[in-house]
Amino acid sequence: MLGLPAHVTACLFDLDGVLTQTARVHNAAWAETFDAFLRQWATAHGQPFVPYDPGPDYNRYVDGRPRADGVRTFLASRGINLPEGAPDDPPEANTVNGVGNRKNDILLRRIHTDGVQVYDGSVTYLHAAARAGLRRAVVSASANCRDVVASAGLEDLLEVRVDGVVAAQRGLRGKPHPDTFLAAAEQLGVKPEQAAIFEDALAGVEAGRAGGFGFVVGVDRVGQATALREYGADTVVADLAELLTGRDAA
């Protein structure tokens, strides 16, 4: 009744874009950050300004990755290589970490202003999974995961949290590596093949497949169902509630 194979006993959910609609806020914060940086860079280097594209640029280079990886990967796509800097670099520093911290400041401002919205279908699915006795974890690259989960009122529905803070503390590689998902499965006391991954990001789906997980659900919020399948999703839905009715997106 949950749209999962019988051998699955645990669900590992990405946060942004799967449980909460903060992916939109993240993307807006990335756009504000990168456009300001690219405009400054173009002026300093006598180049034309080409803005960040919140469609393909977000999905290809940023979505699902740890913050610094997103900065590094996107800027590399523009032929820009910045010094790494340090995690506590000020937001005005033109380093990978500085640009990442700039984005985080903008994100927190937007979350404070706009709040956090959940996907109703995902909350319905979480309740159904809890009633069915499935173990439940949230796995996110975000260092703000705890605050977002609390703001969204999802704390009681999620037993384990592995986020950017935990990953940094434990030295876990971010998606597309499977480390954070494997850590969540271990904390829940299940083997990877007993767990299902729920991801809207291509990097997250890739991580689920790389980790040998029992089932990978791609959540298509932006019209990339084909790409999600190509990266390894076993099934693709537009909303988790579809799994409760047995529907599978094309």
Rank of each mutant, 00 (worst) to 15 (best):
G3H: 03
G3K: 01
A6D: 15
H7Q: 15
H7C: 10
V8Q: 00
V8D: 00
A10W: 01
C11A: 14
C11Q: 02
L12N: 01
L12Y: 01
L15K: 07
D16V: 05
L19I: 10
T20I: 08
T20N: 06
T20Q: 05
Q21M: 08
T22E: 02
A23M: 08
R24V: 03
V25A: 04
A31R: 09
E32G: 05
E32D: 13
E32F: 04
E32S: 09
F34Q: 01
F34M: 15
D35P: 02
A36C: 07
A36F: 02
F37R: 00
L38R: 03
R39L: 11
Q40K: 15
Q40W: 14
Q40S: 15
Q40Y: 09
W41R: 08
W41V: 08
A42P: 02
T43A: 15
A44V: 11
A44E: 15
H45E: 09
H45Y: 12
G46Y: 13
G46P: 08
Q47K: 13
P51G: 07
D53F: 11
P56N: 15
P56C: 13
P56R: 15
D57Q: 08
D57F: 06
D57G: 06
N59E: 15
D63M: 06
D63E: 15
D63N: 14
G64N: 02
G64P: 00
A68T: 12
D69A: 13
D69K: 02
D69Q: 13
G70I: 00
G70C: 05
R72Q: 12
L75C: 07
A76C: 09
S77Q: 13
S77I: 12
S77L: 12
S77G: 12
R78C: 09
G79W: 11
G79K: 13
G79C: 11
I80A: 12
I80T: 09
N81A: 15
N81T: 14
L82I: 12
E84A: 13
G85L: 07
G85C: 10
P87Y: 10
D88A: 14
P91I: 06
E92Y: 14
A93M: 12
V96A: 04
G98Q: 05
G98T: 08
G98A: 14
G100M: 04
K103S: 06
N104I: 07
D105P: 03
I106Q: 00
I106F: 04
I106K: 00
L107P: 01
R109V: 07
R109P: 03
T113Q: 12
T113C: 09
T113G: 04
G115P: 09
G115W: 05
V118K: 07
Y119K: 05
V123E: 06
T124A: 15
Y125I: 08
L126M: 13
A128K: 06
A130V: 13
A130P: 00
A130K: 13
R131M: 14
A132T: 07
A132W: 07
G133H: 11
G133S: 11
L134S: 06
R135V: 02
V138F: 04
V139Y: 02
V139P: 00
A141Y: 02
S142K: 02
A143F: 08
N144A: 09
N144E: 05
R146I: 04
D147P: 00
V149S: 04
